[in-house]
Design a protein around this nucleic acid. Structure first.
Lengths: 351, 351
DNA sequence: CTCCTCTGCTATTTCGTAATAGCAACGTAT
DNA sequence: ATACGTTGCTATTACGAAATAGCAGAGGAG
């Protein structure tokens, strides 16, 4: 037996012919508008029988052409999802997005075809917005070039950005996590544990998500009357020399914007024969170890990735299904506080 | 500034009006039939400009209604992807699928809307085959009810099943891993290490993927002239009593169809004060620890999930882009051999 | 001056479904 | 007998893209 190649599926007209009625009548019966169309029992029965006999299934293309809606939600990630580090980070968002899409009865379109050779993904390629195949889209990740977002918003295309994002002069919807408050709580906790000099190890790119964290750090220090410490930015400065210097200046705790920086600190501590958290406390502000994959367990602020994905889809679906209703155009979800695994009271040395 | 609400997506007619031509001309330009339609440079330029200005993108429903392709590939998983255990298992397939889709310039549709309350996903819901929104689909996971597959194949819908699957009387394309050979190699290796009584711990559902493994186990035993040992099937039989009995009968190695069974064996061994692999060897035939997520590291046969996903997409795209060409209707990829972490030479006790 | 060819498009139809408008036949009321 | 309502449908159109058929005007040949 050979594999069949595509053949013509039966249409409503085929069904109509067999049942001896018109196509419109078949449509009415199939869509439960039989009574509204005053179609008697007997005719309905004949149509149903013909549907069964022919194995008729509605052509979704035709249906959505008529109905305007495809029941498709797009997911656009600005970066390739493959690099290992990114993979784990995005995965949890995707799970949340999928879970909510299931609940709302939408299918998802993953936009991958727009990837350029450099691994970046753009919304517009040759000026064409591929996202339009979906009723609306969730945007994931960060792009330094915000012109795509601006253009999309200007078109009136319905989308929700995951992660707080500000583009001057452009209004759009987003779902974010409250990094400012969460970071502030983290630093407050370190202060409560007796730490007086707390280092902040930051990334190079200062996107909103990181600025918010830094903001929380500064706010906490200020509230406690601690000096505004210099903030280290960028991996290239993160050397053992810097670490020695930091310790010498009395630092007893570090707040690392990214898990990878905490890993470096861990190495330095081991080199100097110090243990975490007994000698030094380290807290991570952005990691994946809180996810389903164990690995290292730093004291790590929990980003509600799953919830953010769900919330973005929920917001998007609400927009699509009731475009008129007024609602908040953004949502800030709380982070979960870090565990105490790599946090401990400041040791005597610093007292 | 308020968020703009959805304006009608531009159509070819809108573009045509702006460019001062007819809809048909726009269609010709967009589909590269400009020369065939003897449309001069200047007009083509005007149309292209109008397309860019309006952000026009083809309506996939209309396009596919007309029998054209959408550049969309569907991914249907028969089970929900959420349960933690499944999540890791499917994830790697999805990565492979996405990677290849990027290369071939297709976007992916994740079919989630067909999930029933029990977590099962069907292709046909209310008799409607939703997969039709995609040009073709990759089917992932296992369904005991093969009628959906049969119906799909009968319709002539282009799809590739990931995982070898046999449905009597139905021919379709699939990509699988060669579990038979890989398992045979595993058992051969254990035999070479001096093991003479090797237990096989199997799952309840005997789908093809498991039957193949069992087949490889039996083949290896038979080739080595070892007795055909009773095969344990089902978690309910996996007790310490059984373990004691197995050891007493001289078993020195176990082949576990699933990682979870290996975990049970590990517990039993600990209870009896035995160490793996010094006292007992354990090899896993289906696990996720070989993936990017560390966790336990059993000696585990590596399933080429990423490659399987890629191969399925490649096969599907070939079918779509050249339906006539003759080609193999299935592909069997090799597994990677397990490491030696939980395998060791048989101890004196069994000699 | 007429016929023909070539250019550069336009007009029309098609795909399958759904919604709206409306018609023919029959019965009922006045 | 005429007007009117009800029943049971059919006819038509729209949705957006694409394919096919073909037409108007310019220019050249005879």
């Amino acid at each position: 037996m050979a594999i069949k190649s595509r053949q013509q599926a039966p249409t409503q007209s085929d069904v109509a012919r067999r049942a001896g009625v018109s196509q419109g009548t078949v449509s009415a019966v199939i869509n439960g508008r039989a009574t509204a169309h005053r179609i008697p029992e007997e005719t309905v029965r004949r149509v149903r029988e013909a549907v069964r006999d022919l194995g008729y299934v509605a052509n979704p293309a035709a249906r959505s052409l008529r109905g305007k809606r495809n029941k498709l939600l797009g997911v656009h990630t600005f970066e390739s999802v493959f690099p290992i580090s990114q993979r784990d980070f995005f995965h949890e968002f995707l799970i949340g997005i999928e879970e909510q899409a299931v609940l709302d009865g939408y299918d998802l379109v993953l936009f991958t075809s727009t990837e350029e050779p450099n691994g970046k993904r753009r919304i517009y390629r040759d000026g064409v917005n591929r996202l339009n195949v979906a009723d609306g889209s969730v945007l994931l990740g960060f792009t330094h070039d915000s012109s795509d977002i601006a253009k999309l918003a200007d078109e009136g295309y319905p989308f929700v950005h995951v992660g707080r994002r500000e583009v001057p002069g452009v209004e759009f919807r987003w779902v974010g996590a409250d990094y400012t408050t969460a970071t502030r709580d983290v630093v407050d906790r370190l202060i409560a544990l007796g730490h007086r000099r707390i280092g902040y190890v930051g990334l190079d790119g200062r996107m909103e998500a990181l600025i918010d964290r830094e903001q929380g750090y500064r706010a906490s220090c200020q509230a406690a009357g601690l000096p505004a410490l210099p903030v280290l930015m960028g991996a290239q400065h993160l050397s053992v020399d810097w670490f020695d210097h930091a310790l010498a200046s009395g630092m007893t705790a570090f707040v690392a914007e990214d898990e990878s920086y905490a890993a470096r600190l861990g190495e330095f501590a081991r080199e100097r024969g110090m243990t975490i958290p007994d000698d030094v406390s380290v807290v991570v502000l952005r990691g994946t170890s809180d996810g389903p994959h164990p690995g290292r367990s730093w004291s790590s602020m929990g980003i509600p990735r799953n919830e953010m994905g769900r919330a973005a889809v929920r917001m998007l679906v609400e927009i699509l299904e009731d475009p008129q209703a007024t609602r908040d155009d953004h949502l800030l979800l709380p982070c979960t506080p870090p565990g105490e695994s790599t946090m401990a009271p400041a040791t005597g040395r610093s007292a």
